[in-house]
Amino acid sequence: MIEKLADIKSKALDELSSLADFNELEVWRVRYLGKKSELTQILRGVASLSQEQRKTVGASANELRSNLEVLYSENKDALKEQAFQDVETTAKGYKDISLPGRPIPLGRLHPITQTVNEICGIFVALGFQVVEGPEVEWDYYNFEALNIPPDHPARDMWDTLWIDTESGQRPMLLRTHTSPMQIRVMEQTQPPVRVVVPGKVYRYEATDATHESMFYQLEGLAVDEYITFADLKGTLYEFAKRLFGKERRVRFRCDYFPFVEPGVEMAIDCFICGGKGCRLCSGTGWIEILGAGMVHPDVLRRVNYDPEVYTGFAFGLGLERIHMLRYGIEDIRLFYSNDLRFLRQF
């Protein structure tokens, strides 16, 4: 039995020295250490031997197994290391890495959606909620509730697309601005209010490079007990910095919208020339980006907010214009003609 073990050992060592690769090592392992190997058979048979033999054979067989296991493990490590060395030294697996990769179709959001999302994100961070509203509106919400009764000259500020309705029905229109949502939000909630409303608006307007019959606006409204013009300034200044860069300056000038008082227009200093005057800012150094103001007390009264208790500010901006300014786009019609060669750039 002992001779047999010696024989196994010598054969095993002999074969081991001539192994070429990992597979052969596995074959070797099965042959000498596997369940059906001679060595395993011997070890299994140890129990049936005499006590004397059990001691010597058992000890030798176990010793041999442990030796072979160590050898297996050492050889395995050496072969692995050899394989790693081969990766470094042979050209196996060489690829022309300048070949293009396998193309994956890339989807994108429409540029106006990207701008809506980005701007809404800024206002959400400033504590505003995003809500949307109907695009087909009653004259009441689009005009009358906003201090623009029929026959008011300010109606000229919004050329309107009217819906064909049966005679005697309340006048219905495509909203000309997102401001009707000021009324709807205030009708449905109590102060404090802080919302922004993105959405499509419509104008009876011949289209050209700077005019569209459909475009996006974003309305903002904040109403509470102590909202001041300084809060309006601060909020919009913060917005301008986050969207156009922290070095931006803002400028407010008096302007008129019937549903705010005082009313202003906000401009940012030109981010191309830094205020020196260039083509983008028509030489003025300033770029007008939005209209704003303090919510008119008559508007508050109309939604049963007491103007002696509550004040608020509102603002509205055209979103294509913002996108156009940021990317140097000169024709607004590009947005809704949806040429993929345009859409893919954003």
Partner: peptide
């Protein structure tokens, strides 16, 4: 108030952020 501020200029006003409580959540 508008008459006053449009003559003195909006640059004279401070810059603050609304300080009140957060509004009730309006889900969309």
């Amino acid at each position: 108030v508008e008459e006053i501020v449009r003559i003195i200029g909006y640059d004279e006003l401070p810059t603050t952020l609304p300080s009140g409580a957060l509004p009730a959540y309006i889900p969309d």
